[in-house]
Design a protein around this nucleic acid. Sequence first.
DNA 1: CAATTTAATGACCCATCGGTCATTAGTCAA
DNA 2: TTGACTAATGACCGATGGGTCATTAAATTG
Lengths: 212, 212
Amino acid sequence: MTRDAEPGKKRQRRKDARPQEILDAAMVLWAERGFAATRLDDVAKAAGIAKGTVYLYYASKEALFEAAIQDRLVSVMREHQGLSQSFEGSSAELLTLFLNTVYARLLKTDAVTLLKVLIGEGHHFPDLVKLYREVAIETGMAAIGFIVKRAQARGELRDGMSDLDARLIIAPAIMAAIWQSVFAGEDAMDTDAFMNDHIHLIRQGLLKPDAL
Amino acid sequence: MTRDAEPGKKRQRRKDARPQEILDAAMVLWAERGFAATRLDDVAKAAGIAKGTVYLYYASKEALFEAAIQDRLVSVMREHQGLSQSFEGSSAELLTLFLNTVYARLLKTDAVTLLKVLIGEGHHFPDLVKLYREVAIETGMAAIGFIVKRAQARGELRDGMSDLDARLIIAPAIMAAIWQSVFAGEDAMDTDAFMNDHIHLIRQGLLKPDAL
DNA sequence: CAATTTAATGACCCATCGGTCATTAGTCAA
DNA sequence: TTGACTAATGACCGATGGGTCATTAAATTG
């Protein structure tokens, strides 16, 4: 797991690289075992350092998780917002593009890990739940809200759908990501087919027939 | 938390009632704290007994969780299946009835607790994940599959929707239940409105316009 | 009212793990 | 080369919690 270890030396002083390496190692283990069940000692081993070293960079296990939220979500969520604002085209196309991007992010990165941990163990860390909500959820909901408003402005939205709960639109994507990580292996789903069904269903339900 | 305690006596011999009481106490604490973070000692206290007594009825913490799956899901899932089979009426009505029932079960009972625990900590207990899948998921998927087939037989299904992934239909309900339990309080959602939007969206996307 | 059975107890054992800190060693300036 | 600085170490501490078992006492039987 050590990265650029020059084999000759026992101790390596690499102050700049450590934080990110610790964080990456932690994410892998959290995904496998959950938060409480992952020992700081194992995170350290996976990052190629001793446990004490972790505490040079993060004040506590909880602080490490907070750093992970910042590291994994902040930049990605900003991108998401940008995507819709610069788009020119029909709502059907925008919805497709947006959901494709969401699925890619959720299924191909380790973003779900954070969500999984918060679902199962968030009760002990109200501050982290709050942070996650602010960083990920509010931004995400705003992005969807923008798409819906845009569709209405363009006259492509079905009547009575204007203040539909934004969570309804991404729920299947979130569930699919969680599903994959919980039932992976013994009940894997065809995520591409699922995504296409999802997009189709949303377009059908949300947009006027002549906007499809 | 003790139930029928006759106050005079220190020890109560109530062999029959213990298992269920232990289980109920455990479910409450698991919902609050998760599985790993809930001490058997606290479960025992909440059930009004000593820790050792728990081990008279359940071989281990894991066995207790398995018993919870059996207790909470088996009978309920059987009911779900029955519901659709005896129904006479349009698919629009059946879908509405079915989803109403699902939301009631997920939001008004402690069924989500089990799912939450499995999402966050299931990796340590592959046997429990498997059991959950068999007991809850396969039955649930079959129930939805039945509804879709029935709609098609009645000519009420949109073209190309016949082998839509059943998970897509209940995903928002599951997400809503989890959402409530994770973000309860600081970001509570209007679950009734959400459910109605959900039903509306599904009917719109799944059924032919003239079947609405 | 013994004698027997067994539900219930809780002190105890021991492995685990988050966090600390005195010690070690890599780096660099003078 | 040496001294100062500080990144890195890992033995250790203290708390925690799953699981055990010798002991206690409630019920039951004759």
